[in-house]
Design a protein around this nucleic acid. Structure first.
Lengths: 190, 190, 190, 190
DNA sequence: GATGAATGAGATTTCATTCAT
DNA sequence: TATGAATGAAATCTCATTCAT
């Protein structure tokens, strides 16, 4: 019973992501989502109280997912730079593979759907990234600037890179990835 | 006879920008816009054939505006770095002062409103930025990487910086601005 | 001054007729009419108090026109049948040449635009036709049936003939016209 | 689960017919139709994609209906004239009883609603009438004129008769009906 | 008188949500 | 639980009419 439910929620989420990436948040209706998910419109309301709740739940899920993936394989024992690069690559890979989520989150952020509560919870998940920057600064490897500023820089550049990659037909090969990382590292390094 | 009024178009644009920044593209109606602009709903349709056209026109106007402002005071005779910083600051100032446009453009890009034609025309306006990067590379001051990649980096980081500045209550004082520029420059410099 | 006005009213009438024939009464707007007439929308209201009045005036004008034309060349001195045929041909010619009026009147009859007053006035103009039938009956040339029934028959058949001629590409040559008249005459004749 | 209901389509059709007969095609709104049909406005759009589709569907249904009814009781074995009269009476009865459809079809024909496709399909349904005329001609009972012309004559006269009957307060009693048929038959007969 | 921009009521259509099955 | 027809409030858009020039 529970299995079945979970599967359906995933179907719904994927349908919503696909559609928002294609048509933008403003162009997606509950009817669209149900059709894309292969279920009846009424069934959406079995799983979510309404559109707001669906969007907020998806937003939270995306955010959690992306943070979780970022630190995969990270080991504080190993030196900072390779550890940092590992995380940087995790994030990049995730954003490329889940491009729809990137767009969805961007579109949501300014929508009336996302509640302050959801927004704040998303922010709280940034803690590990602040900790990472802190470590780099303690080891005197990266600039002693405000961590928020540094993170902003990394994340903003990355998002744009992912979008550009998606729209242009330039494939992001190993060499291009390394160049991008070098830009990032040179920006941060003390 | 009453004559069509360019001022009214500006009123409409400003109303739309204000509302999209506040409620997101998906939450803004033609009724909202007309009310905010202080005109009747029908009057919107005197100036724009429909919502699509209004959004596309505003998108194009924002894009043109932002490019135009960027190169204000730029003089190819003066050395590269101060010239580049001038432009960088122009862009930053513009984005901070016209934050609503930043949000609007981000929201629009994935909406079903923006036509491919509009999108392409926006892209074509990037030419001067490519020329700028080219100059820096010819003078061996910045990395010999793909210009698109470098621009992506700068723009992405800047956008995120502006958004972060807006949401957090951190004021972007001179020192913080300089730090941000240094991050950018260190990333780019050869 | 008066001349100028009359010309404009004719322009307006012709524009309205053209458009109603093309798009039907329900598809024609005041804006359409003014554009087709080559004048400003506001100007329509200089000549007519509103849409209703315009339509009613045009309806009345068409009706008067058609009746007037019908009896052109009719001389009660000459024998009935050729006189009748003359009128029949007048009507047919008029309807063919002013097809737009045929359509307009048909469309109007059931519209909420035409007032009862207009409708009645139109009816009153039928008197000469009743007189014509009466003469034929007195001369024992046509059936002693109710005149309304006989007129209905003639007019209905004629209208349909005109419409069919217009839609199909069959040209109404002399022979076809004579056949049609014979049908009509055979129906009526005592 | 609620199932789509054919009865509802009939309700909608009848509501539309009633209203068009009363107020003309140009005066009828989707809101009017839904109210008259006793359903919500949105429900109309469950059954028809839009006003155009509704009108076209109703037009086609009326046409099919009327043709089907016309030949009820017709038997090619029995002699031509009584067979013909049977059909003529069928048509007359139908038009009198479904006067709203007569008006609706007349109003529609020149509206921007009816597509060429619908118009052509309606025309194709005339085949049996042509066959009927053909038989009469083969049996040398009716004039050897173009069948289209003869049909035009019959139909046009009938439509007008029905309209006149409806507007005037003259009841169409047996004697008047027979007179009308005689007019028709005398027109056609060889 | 002539113009056409401005208006706002009302038409068409959409869509989140409910509900009967 | 699942369905999708039904709903009606709200969105987009139209258009007869007015009004400032």
């Amino acid at each position: 019973m529970k299995r079945k439910d979970d599967k359906k929620i995933i179907q719904i989420f994927q349908a919503a992501l696909r559609l928002v990436a294609e048509k933008g948040l403003s162009g997606v209706t509950m009817g669209d989502i149900s059709r894309e998910a292969g279920i009846a419109t009424g069934t959406l309301y079995v799983y979510f109280k309404g559109k707001d709740e669906l969007i907020n739940a998806l937003f939270a899920a995306c955010r959690e997912n992306s943070v979780q993936v970022s630190f995969k394989g990270y080991n504080p024992q190993i030196p900072f730079k390779p550890g940092f690069k590992n995380i940087w690559l995790n994030i990049l890979r995730y954003k490329l593979q889940h491009f729809e989520e990137v767009i969805f989150m961007e579109q949501c952020y300014h929508s009336p759907f996302i509640t302050n509560d959801t927004r704040e919870k998303a922010l709280q998940l940034s803690a590990p990234f602040y900790a990472l920057i802190d470590r780099g600064q303690k080891e005197q490897l990266i600039k002693q600037a405000d961590a928020g500023l540094l993170l902003t820089f990394i994340i903003g550049a990355m998002n744009e890179l992912v979008k550009q990659t998606h729209y242009s037909s330039i494939t992001l090969n190993r060499s291009r990835i390394n160049t991008a990382f070098d830009l990032c590292w040179d920006a941060l390094k003390a």
